[in-house]
Amino acid sequence: MSDDARPRPQYGEYASPEEQRARIQRPEVTEALEAGVAPAPEPAVDETPAAARARGPLADRVATFVLLVYGLISVISTIVQLLDFPGYAERAAQILGVDATYTALSTGYVWGAVASVVYAVGYLLTAWLTWRRLRRGRIAFWVPLVGFVATTLVAGVCITIALTADPAFLSALTGSFAN
């Protein structure tokens, strides 16, 4: 029996190992070969280190870094103020144009400290989540913004509890809004 009498291979049994790998990994190669067209060359392997590829857009990284630095400065200054809660409350009253003295000292110091811990933990959690997203090359600028809102809401509850512990101070504040 001559070679011409043999049936033409249908399933690639005469394909070289390279051709078989190309057909498995890149279905467009199979289509090109079946159409009688030379397949496109394999895409070049990216020689960029994985850490460099996963960094994400430069603008996002810069904005994220700026937000984290600003947040750190804000958190530190807020913690310092909250640890002297009576002074913090009286400064807030002065800004509102109210002459009031905060007298619930023990409650103020406790809730001021709790709010300080909330700010510290909130910032650390935000920074950690941001770092994880940046390492994976994902957009991360929004994480410090969401972290700020969430942390401020929880700390705001603590501050409100401390302010409501002094009815005279609270009355003076709310009276200023009524005028």
Rank of each mutant, 00 (worst) to 15 (best):
T48I: 11
S16V: 02
A35L: 08
A115G: 04
V37L: 15
R132Y: 01
P49N: 05
L124F: 09
L83N: 09
A63E: 08
T126Y: 01
Y11V: 10
V117I: 13
T101S: 13
V75P: 02
I73Q: 01
P57F: 10
S176H: 12
S16T: 13
R53K: 15
E28A: 12
A127H: 00
G175C: 07
W111I: 00
A40L: 12
G175K: 09
I159F: 06
F85D: 07
P144F: 02
S171G: 14
L129T: 00
V45I: 11
A92Q: 06
T107P: 01
T103D: 11
R6P: 00
I76C: 10
R53T: 07
R23P: 00
L33H: 06
A162Y: 06
R6I: 00
L124H: 03
T130V: 09
A172I: 11
R26M: 02
V118T: 04
A140Q: 08
Y102R: 11
Q10P: 00
A15R: 05
D3Q: 11
A89F: 05
T101L: 10
F65Q: 07
P167S: 11
E19R: 10
W131C: 03
G122S: 09
V114R: 03
D60W: 13
V146I: 15
E19Y: 01
A100G: 01
P41S: 06
I24Q: 12
V149R: 03
D166P: 11
A89P: 07
E42V: 14
L124Q: 04
R21G: 04
Q25D: 13
P167Y: 12
A35D: 06
L72V: 09
L129M: 14
V146Y: 00
F177W: 13
F148C: 03
G71V: 01
A22H: 11
T174L: 14
G36L: 09
T101N: 10
R132P: 04
L129E: 06
V62P: 03
R136N: 14
P39E: 07
G175D: 13
V146N: 00
